[in-house]
Design a protein around this nucleic acid. Structure first.
Lengths: 212, 212
DNA sequence: CCTCAATTGTGGACAATGTCCACAATTGCC
DNA sequence: GGCAATTGTGGACATTGTCCACAATTGAGG
């Protein structure tokens, strides 16, 4: 089942090829990560000749990069959704703590629910500009990285995290959560049972909270 | 400069093709990570027809996997070297702490020094058996994962780490260090300056020590 | 309304790669 | 000394990314 949906069109122009290619690329990435994003298959799904893609993406890499940003956007959505499910807390400090943990659990939920998109989100030859690009943002307009930063700011504002520890804290928390995600998704920990993964997630966030 | 060293040989048999392919694969991985390991190029460098590889590896994936294990072995060596440079410590607790940190700094040194091998070490469709395979061991016979476990055991033995926190601790420490490594090597943090990476490494290990 | 240039798609081609099949050279065991 | 297993070779095929020349369509300016 390589090519699906060979859309026949009557007009010579496609109309919205760039978007169609991006969506096809996202589907491919969802199924197999960034290196499952194959240009020709995307054009096939869009019902268009292979070369047409080059009118919208200079390169296969350009398509993959666009897919990366979109995948990061989906990650942001999952993180927002996780924060939205939080029960009302007792106090502001507890609320800030819960929001912070939700950033991590949302991140890991996404990685385990959409492993292909997760891998695609972080392997497109990207730098920090990608982590702050508007295309990578969720409904609230914040990228995953910015959601983490906001949660950390809240921790400081509520006195949970000493201000002296704030600088660079995003990279520490990010590293810990990202590391577990990578090990679970396509690292040596891929075989662990879901409930064990949940438990490890909890322990990891405990460690981060204590250690930050 | 695709194929180098087109070794001419007089005998029909190569003599040690498997090893030659593995070494060629390691060189390719060193230069470009696991997906730079291309079967035909490896055979070219070994001075042999492309199909000869199939007598020793069932698949390209099998070659990549062997390269992964070998790369993990090199990682183990770097970690051992890092531990070997430790100055004599004041007490056993300090020594255990230093050995533990050396595991992390060695890991990150390897990732930054040999990014290609590092990537290759962790993307070969591997599970925990790879982390404990003899091929992945260093001079001391321990794999990177086992070196970490030993360091944690020492922490417990010296009373630095409560025994109740020991179960699963390797996965927490590993996640944190691995995450930073991945973000630095081909994640969004690839552009940070070396001294900033050093500083972040230090902060990360502080966090882990406090939080474990 | 008509022309003409810019835009967007098409078709054919090329090199590279992983992998398969049939065949050849060599080795070593009985 | 013969014969079967092992190890390499040669040629082939499908797939992919990418390039070049060309075709269809669109839209702006006269």
């Amino acid at each position: 089942m390589t090519s699906a949906d060979p859309v026949r069109r009557s007009t010579y122009r496609h109309g919205n090829l760039r978007q169609a290619l991006l969506e096809a690329g996202l589907e491919l990435a969802r199924a197999g990560g960034h290196d499952a994003v194959v240009l020709r298959e995307a054009t096939r799904r869009a019902g268009v000749a292979a070369n047409a893609a080059y009118r919208h993406f200079s390169d296969r890499d350009a398509l993959v990069h666009a897919v990366s940003l979109a995948a990061m956007g989906e990650l942001a959505h999952t993180m927002e959704a996780e924060q939205a499910t939080l029960p009302p807390s007792t106090g502001p400090a507890e609320a800030a703590r819960a929001r912070f943990r939700a950033v991590g659990t949302g991140y890991l939920r996404f990685a385990r629910t959409e492993p292909g998109l997760f891998r695609a989100a972080f392997y497109g030859r990207l730098d920090m500009t990608a982590a702050e690009a508007a295309e990578s943002a969720g409904a609230g307009g914040l990228t995953p990285f910015q959601l983490l930063g906001a949660a950390l700011d809240d921790l400081v504002a509520c006195g949970v995290l000493p201000a002296a520890r704030r600088p660079g804290a995003e990279f520490l928390a990010w590293s810990a959560v990202h590391g577990l995600a990578v090990l679970l998704v396509d690292g040596p920990l891929r075989a662990v049972q879901p409930d064990q993964a949940d438990e490890t997630t909890r322990l990891l966030l405990d460690m981060v909270e204590r250690g930050l």
